[in-house]
Nucleic acid binder design. Structure first.
Length: 488
RNA sequence: GGCGCCGUAGCCAAGGGGUAAGGCGAAGGUCUGCAAAACCUUUAUACGGCGGUUCGAAUCCGCCCGGCGCCUCCA
């Protein structure tokens, strides 16, 4: 793959598009910040996760072996670090739902996993949970204390920002001006208002707590990502990603914690932009969010995927029902062409010679697609290439194209649309079941019509065909009923 | 106040010095017993406004208007 896959990506830290060169040839180490599991995920979370899912898939398409690590934050961090008054999200939810904190974390972790699966996201290689890595976090904090970059205060440990001049390099903030924006009144235990917690002592009411060299407490929010990314991807791993709103302070803190402890951190930083509703950021606190569960009960997950594919990951994307419906329409067309293509091909997949008109169109599509994706994963342009091929295929399907003519196009749809973009996933569950039951009802109506006309041969033929498919037909006084032979 | 982003057709949305991708919608057409679907064609002399640089700007620079994000938890 000489320079066919010369991938350039926008590095937030350098503020420009740079060529991606892996630290280990042929491999990519990718860390993506995952959710805090205390409530259902919303569409905004999906935007970021889908972006990195596609980036990961494209690297694999380009021949890389990718290790993708995405954390699950299940420690009950407090909402306001400057005061002990802030409440712990998971703890608060535990009290509200009358569950153990870990029950809350598990409940919403699985909820999140289900949502991501429905959206056809590939599972990360590793999904480390913060509570499962307390020793690693304690070890990292100890290194920082030993090097003078952290200090204890009343059972808590803070990172000494003044000792790390590089702080601010990612978000391009002047370390000396950070003080002004911070509330200085509170938090007497900090040496400096800019310092942030690595370990917090647990107040008696705090439910999630662990022993540490500094007493009973819980880790700070940022430290888990430093510890877990280094553990599974190693020093100087390739790419760290996340939502734009995590750039400061979360990612800034991650770098400081790792590098001040002597561990070179991520070589490239990628940030997905936010999702807006009526121009404003979708977020939990604003209350303007749509949970994925609610959204996916009304819409095809693939339509959601397509909607997000239509805008670049670094752009703000606007969500509304009209835009989603338009995406659903667009997806239906794309899928329709692909399905018809597969239907015409049947089991045959002849080797195209490359001379065929559609094979040439497919080759153009692939070249355009790769050019777009190599340039900082420009999915809107890559998608346009796919629609271009769809149009040519649909047009050809009006006639009687030879299978050899269709094979190259089918392969292109599969590799680009299905494998890289994650589209065309068969939507399981309700939608499929409704279709099946509707179809069976329709067939039985027809059979009933035959029976009423005493066209027994036809009615028996239908019954036999259905039986062969594992559907048993029962004729009773109230009419005919069907049931599936085995639980599938 | 500091740092940064955006403003492109009715809607969503790429592009980003050489004359406007794609999707939805809409209009016309082919097909059709009718309808739907499908397919074909058309749909921004124009990229918030005003200046500047240039042979040439939506693309670069300046100012202005409007909107948004981070700086506190947030994907």
């Amino acid at each position: 793959m000489a320079d066919r896959f010369e991938i350039h990506l926008y590095d937030t830290k350098q503020r420009e598009k740079v060529r991606f060169l892996p630290s280990v040839p042929g491999r990519v180490g990718l860390y993506v910040c995952g959710p805090t599991v205390y409530s259902d995920a919303h569409l905004g979370h999906a935007k970021t996760q889908i972006a990195f899912d596609i980036i990961r898939r494209y690297f694999e398409y380009a021949g890389y072996q990718v290790r993708m690590v995405s954390n699950i934050t299940d420690v009950g961090h407090i909402t306001d670090e400057t005061s002990d008054e802030g409440h712990d999200r998971i703890g608060a939810r535990a009290r509200l739902e009358q569950l153990e904190p870990m029950e809350v974390a598990d409940k919403y972790f699985w909820s999140y996993a289900d949502d991501m699966a429905r959206l056809n996201l590939r599972r990360p290689s590793v999904s480390p949970r913060a509570t499962g890595h307390i020793p690693e976090q304690i070890a990292l904090i100890s290194e920082l204390i030993a090097r003078g970059h952290a200090y204890q205060a009343a059972g808590s440990v803070y990172f000494r920002v003044a000792s790390w001049p590089a702080y601010g390099q990612l978000s391009h903030r002047d370390i000396d001006e950070l003080t002004s924006g911070t509330r200085e009144e509170v938090r007497g235990e900090k040496e400096d208002p800019r310092d942030f917690a690595l370990w917090k002592r647990a107040e008696p009411s705090h439910l999630m707590r662990w022993d540490s060299p500094w007493g009973v407490g819980f880790p700070g929010w940022h430290i888990e990502c430093s510890a877990m990314s280094l553990k599974y991807l190693g020093d100087g791993f390739d790419i760290h990603g996340g939502g734009l709103d995590l750039q400061f302070p979360h990612h800034e803190a991650e770098i400081a914690q790792a590098e001040a402890a002597g561990h070179p951190f991520a070589r490239y930083w990628m940030h997905a932009n936010l999702l807006t509703v009526g121009g404003e950021k979708m977020s939990k606190s604003r209350g303007n969010f749509v949970t994925l569960k609610e959204l996916l009960s009304r819409h095809d997950p693939m339509a959601v995927r397509l909607l997000l594919l239509q805008s670049h990951y670094r752009s703000v994307a606007e969500f509304n029902e009209v835009a989603l419906s338009a995406a659903a329409q667009a997806y239906a067309r794309l899928r329709g062409v692909y399905q018809e293509l597969l239907r015409r091909l049947g089991d045959s997949l002849p080797e195209p010679s490359g001379e065929e008109w559609l094979a040439q169109a497919a080759a153009r599509c692939r070249a355009d697609f790769e050019r777009a994706m190599n340039d900082d994963f420009n999915t809107p342009e890559a998608l346009a290439a796919l629609f271009g091929l769809a149009r040519e295929v649909a047009s050809a399907l009006q006639g009687q194209p030879q299978p050899a003519e269709l094979a190259a196009a089918a392969r292109t749809f599969r590799q680009l649309g299905e494998e890289v973009f994650g589209l065309f996933a068969e939507t399981q569950g309700r939608a499929g079941e409704e279709l099946v039951s509707g179809l069976l009802d329709l067939i039985l109506e027809q059979r009933t019509a035959y029976r009423e006309r005493r066209q027994w041969a036809e009615s028996d033929r239908l019954r036999a065909r259905l039986e062969a498919l594992g559907v048993t037909v029962e004729d009773g006084q109230g009419g005919s009923r069907w049931k599936l032979a085995q639980s599938s």
